[in-house]
Amino acid sequence: MAITDSSTVETPAEMRIAELTHQGVMHIHGEDAEGFLQSQFINDLSELSSGQTQINGYCDAKGRLLAIFQLLKRAEHFFIIAPNEILPGLIKRLNLFVLRSKVTIEVLPWHIFVAWGSEIDTMVATLGERSGQSDETLKDPNLKTIRSTQLMTFRDDSTALLLLADSKESIVNEPVLAELLTPEAAWQSDRVRAGVPTIYQSTVGQFLPQWVNMDLIDGLSFRKGCFPGQEIIARTRYLGKLKKRMVAFSAQGIDDQAAQSLLPGSTVYDQDQQKIGTVVDAVEYPAGDWHLLAMVRLAGVSDTLLAGEVTLHAEKLPYPIPETTDSKADSQQA
């Protein structure tokens, strides 16, 4: 789904906080949790210490992404932050492989907030470090508070503060936070412009990790052990450079009907109306200004492409896209 906002004025960038109403929290814990997740996910959990986050993903046997998410580790507990619409399918698939492992997977009814901006260090110092270290603390229904605060650092060197809370009131009751509330679309717009992809229900199973730049934003490890789809993903890397990558676009002055052609999973065309790619993510913020990520064939990229009747204007990502050559593996996966 595309996130939109009706605000006509962008919130000042010094400091913001948004509730991620379209995201949910999955909790994985148990004696075998870390080993189990290491065998399933595409990034290396051995590089994740308690109190850290990483961008990670989950693929099917063909190497196609079923999910992209932020993974938070707290002691023996792991928390996945991902779109609500894909959580049921993600839980169902993970449970297929639990077998006799001592692992529990559940969705928590927590609210997710993220704070970002130039004063993030001051906010971290003000709130302090809060974390649950036991099942009792993490799941006590009578504890109405901010359960966890965690600083996240991204590939573009930006930072943000992830807050998990029982309710919106837990945030509003913090004076340092309440006056900074801004629409969710503001955060999603920043992430799209930073080149961070998201998998929605409409794009489950469509993209190899490299096609959406997971290898360029530290979201994919080629050094860890086996995981679903690893052979195909590795073959795509070692048999040649990719012909497909995720790039950024913008569009302005789009009405509601035209915006339907910008939804994730929609087709992107070149000026000759030939299919060249697929929309990965799109967000409108402020009203009338659209920011998009699309997976495209790099050989056909120009300054302007089309999604339906909408003209897309190429934008720069904050990280470089490697030069491309024909890849036999990439062609076979098209």
Rank of each mutant, 00 (worst) to 15 (best):
V114F: 01
L90Q: 07
E119Y: 09
P88H: 07
V107M: 12
A75W: 12
R64G: 02
V114N: 03
T122L: 14
V25G: 06
S49G: 11
E85Q: 13
I68W: 12
Q40P: 08
S50I: 09
S101Q: 08
H77L: 12
F69E: 09
I80Q: 08
N56E: 08
S46K: 15
H111S: 12
V25R: 04
I81A: 06
R64H: 07
R93T: 15
S50W: 04
I42C: 12
N56M: 05
F36P: 00
D44H: 06
P83T: 13
Q52R: 03
L72W: 02
L127P: 03
L65R: 06
F41C: 01
I28P: 00
E119F: 07
L71A: 04
G57F: 05
Q70L: 14
K73T: 05
Q52S: 10
T126P: 10
E85D: 12
C59M: 07
L127G: 04
Q54W: 07
P88G: 07
N95A: 07
L66I: 10
A67V: 09
V114C: 02
I105Y: 04
S49N: 14
I112Q: 05
H27V: 00
K73W: 08
A75N: 13
I91N: 12
H111A: 08
R64I: 01
I112D: 01
P88F: 10
F78A: 01
K92G: 02
K73D: 08
L87P: 10
G35A: 03
C59Q: 05
D60S: 05
L65N: 06
E34I: 13
E106Q: 15
N43F: 02
G117Q: 02
A75R: 14
I86N: 01
L48T: 03
M26P: 02
A82S: 13
L45K: 03
S118Q: 13
R93G: 11
F78K: 01
A125Y: 11
G30V: 05
M26I: 09
K62C: 02
R74W: 10
Q54H: 09
L45C: 00
I80D: 09
V103G: 03
H77R: 13
M123Q: 14
F41Q: 00
I42K: 04
L45T: 05
H77N: 14
L99M: 04
H27P: 01
F36E: 00
G51L: 13
R74A: 10
A115F: 07
L108V: 07
Q40L: 06
L45F: 08
W116D: 05
R93N: 14
F78W: 11
C59N: 06
G117H: 01
S118I: 09
I68K: 11
E31T: 13
I68Q: 13
L37R: 03
V25C: 09
R100Q: 13
C59P: 00
L99D: 00
P83N: 11
A67C: 14
I28A: 04
I91A: 15
H111T: 11
N84S: 15
L127Q: 07
H27S: 00
H29F: 15
N95Y: 04
K102V: 07
F113E: 09
F36C: 03
L72K: 00
R64C: 04
E106I: 10
F97G: 04
K73S: 10
N43Q: 13
G35I: 00
Q54Y: 12
A75C: 11
S46G: 15
L65H: 08
L48A: 00
R74H: 12
R74D: 14
V124E: 11
F41S: 02
F113V: 08
F41L: 04
F78D: 02
L127S: 05
W116I: 04
